[in-house]
């Protein structure tokens, strides 16, 4: 009886050993195959890519022209682009990447988003009351959004929502104000605005026509007190070719630009403004805006 039990135990032990040996053998062979394959098929990935990516701000905004920070880092290590193209990174951050890769950073002049509309609720009239989704894109689908000026800012703040950098805030008259220190010129607000009011401009170009109204004559001042009436005074007094009247709107040619405050002095409505980090400075010749509250709906 005891012998039989011993035999059973022995067989059990052997089976366990066989199982261990068989599985061990199979896994060993496979491990060797994989180890060899790993040697043969090893892909060299530039270790600098990850390091450079860590130095980048991880905003993935696309302002550099690449889909995100990782592709930008790849292009950087290949020498296809320059660290200065990143508009989000701080000066120190750009220098750090440039030093790491042994490059000299070619900085571009800082660009910021600027709004070509100054028609806040205190100067621009609404002709209809919009009661729908609080979004410019939705409102603009319904007869342009109800504002007297078809081209004007609707003020629901799609740009404020879309801005990843907290650089846009709405002021008390429902106009977006860009904090130029925070703005990285990623272009998200340019894309989202249904009225195409934002554009990316060099920060050093402080002169801006803050209007897109294409109508002509003083009648449009009824709709918005700071509209461009296409009077042409600015164009006449500016250096030749710097300001032109195109389709009833003053347009500044930034390729032929001098930073001077003369045009804002000449503008009778205050449509041409001097941008100073979010503040719109107007000339002294135009009628000053003292109204604080919104203009009434519809009536004239």
């Amino acid at each position: 009886m005891q012998e039989k039990n011993g035999l059973k135990l022995f067989i059990k032990k052997v089976t366990i050993l066989i199982a261990i040996a068989a599985l061990g053998g199979i896994t060993l062979v496979l491990a060797i195959v994989l180890a060899v394959a790993n040697r043969k098929l090893y892909v060299y990935e530039d270790p600098r890519i990850d390091i450079v990516e860590d130095m980048l701000p991880h905003a993935n905004c696309g302002a550099c022209g690449y889909p995100g920070c990782k592709p930008f880092a790849e292009a950087l290590t290949k020498g296809e682009t320059n660290p200065g193209k990143c508009t989000v990174s701080s000066e120190a951050g750009i220098d750090q990447i440039a030093n790491y890769l042994g490059l000299t950073a070619e900085r571009e002049d800082k660009k910021v988003a600027r709004l070509a509309c100054a028609g806040g609720s205190n100067v621009a009239r609404k002709r209809a009351k919009y009661e729908g989704i609080k979004s410019c894109q939705a409102a603009s689908l319904i007869s342009g959004g109800g504002k007297g000026c078809f081209w004007g800012c609707l003020g629901f703040g799609d740009c404020e929502t879309v801005c990843d950098f907290d650089a846009i805030s709405m002021d008390q008259h429902g106009l977006p104000v860009v904090d130029e220190d925070k703005c990285t010129a990623c272009g998200d607000c340019v894309e989202v605005c249904p009225k195409d009011l934002f554009s990316l401009q060099y920060q050093k170009h402080q002169l801006l026509v803050a209007c897109k109204n294409l109508e002509v004559g003083d009648e449009i001042l009824e709709e918005c007190e700071v509209a461009c009436t296409a009077c042409g005074k600015c164009a006449m007094d500016a250096p030749k070719g710097m300001i032109n009247i195109e389709s009833n709107l003053a347009v500044i040619d930034y390729s032929n630009y001098t930073n001077s405050q003369v045009p804002i002095e000449r503008c009778p409505t205050g449509a041409i403004v001097w941008q100073d980090n979010g503040f719109m400075l107007r000339g002294t010749s135009h009628k000053s805006i003292i109204r604080k509250e919104s203009r009434p709906l519809g009536s004239s």
Partner: peptide
């Protein structure tokens, strides 16, 4: 051959 068909699945 080694009489361990129960290892089939895991192998």
């Amino acid at each position: 051959a080694i009489g361990a068909p129960f290892l089939q699945l895991i192998s």
